[in-house]
């Protein structure tokens, strides 16, 4: 920071004593020091000017040369600056600053009763003052459409029809903004935005947990016991699964990368298929077989599940 007149920067007359100069600097430093005024760039600029002026005038020899016109005020710029380091504020505002947290370094920065009270009063009182709100709608989207991405039609109260693109991986509560699509007020003012909150219609087969999709897949007795390939529609296109032999109700298969597709920096998720054995319709052959069947290792499933009497 180059100052034309260091005396002016410090607010002292040209014949001020060294003591008066030091005192003026201290007064201004207390007021404008950037570590005491974080985020205030005007104070920071002012402090640089003051520090630079003081750097020049506090040195009696330099001051004399300036007074004789041998150097200009920028002569002070070549001097080593007292304030060359980045200051405390840069550290204090980063996560490193938690070390000097007022409540102590172990305290939880967010578990602050005072902060909670502030938020409670902020949200309880509603919004302060009138202001143009974007028009807000809710759009229910079937789970798999939200997972795969889809275009959905939305009819506005003024009968306009909008085609809304739902990006792949959209989850419940996601807000989409359509800029400048709200109905104009008729007074020539700029059209506002439309906000669309996405709601998810549950799927009869699939459930979603973040990037994971879960499916409960019915299998026949022989598929469970003997294993084998089964074809399923899949959340994102047909899938061929290999059921391992000796599977059972509750056996879980993971299909890598067939859950929710990658989006917004999140990697693609997996599909978890949980098997459910279905005995199926009456079959005299099965009845006959079971009547003669002597299990090699008799077992009581109620014992393993704790349901035994």
């Amino acid at each position: 920071m180059i100052v034309d007149d260091p005396y002016k920067a410090l607010g002292v007359p040209r014949d001020a004593t060294q003591e008066a100069i030091r005192s003026a600097y201290r007064k201004l430093a207390k007021q404008h020091h950037p570590d005491l005024n974080p985020g205030n760039s005007a104070a920071e600029e002012r402090f640089k000017a003051v520090a630079s002026a003081y750097g020049l005038l506090s040195d009696a020899a330099q001051r004399a040369r300036f007074d004789r016109g041998e150097i200009d005020a920028s002569g002070a710029e070549q001097r080593p600056q007292a304030q060359a380091h980045s200051g405390y504020r840069a550290h204090a505002e980063s996560s490193a600053g938690q070390r000097y947290r007022h409540a102590g370094p172990e305290a939880d920065e967010w578990n602050d009763p005072d902060l909670e009270a502030m938020f409670a009063s902020m949200f309880a009182g509603g919004r302060a003052g009138p202001r143009a709100e974007p028009a807000q709608y809710r759009l229910a989207v079937p789970l798999l459409d939200a997972v795969n991405g889809a275009t959905k039609r939305l009819t506005l109260p003024d009968q306009r029809v909008l085609d809304v693109k739902i990006p792949p991986g959209t989850d419940a509560g996601h807000m989409l903004r359509l800029r400048g699509q709200a109905t104009k007020a008729g007074d020539g003012s700029k059209a506002g935005d439309i906000l669309i909150e996405i709601a998810i219609e549950p799927d009869p087969l699939y459930t979603r947990e973040g990037q994971i999709l879960r499916l409960e897949l019915p299998v026949t007795l022989s598929e469970a016991v003997l294993g084998g390939p089964v074809e399923i529609a899949g959340p994102r296109g047909a899938l061929r699964l290999r059921i391992p032999p000796h599977s059972d109700t509750g056996t879980e298969l993971r299909v890598r990368g067939r859950g929710v597709p990658a989006h917004d920096g999140k990697p693609e998720g997996d599909l978890y298929v949980r098997l459910r054995v279905m005995v199926g319709p009456r079959d005299p052959a099965l009845d006959a077989f079971l009547q003669t069947w002597q299990p090699a290792r008799p077992f009581n499933p109620r014992q393993t599940t704790g349901a035994a009497s």
Partner: peptide
């Protein structure tokens, strides 16, 4: 003062994360 400024920064960061994204 710096506690409050760190909290404010974290809040702004969070608000930016959850603010509506533009529809493609």
């Amino acid at each position: 003062l710096y506690d409050t400024r760190r909290q404010m920064r974290a809040l702004i960061e969070r608000l930016r994360e959850i603010s509506p994204s533009d529809a493609p």
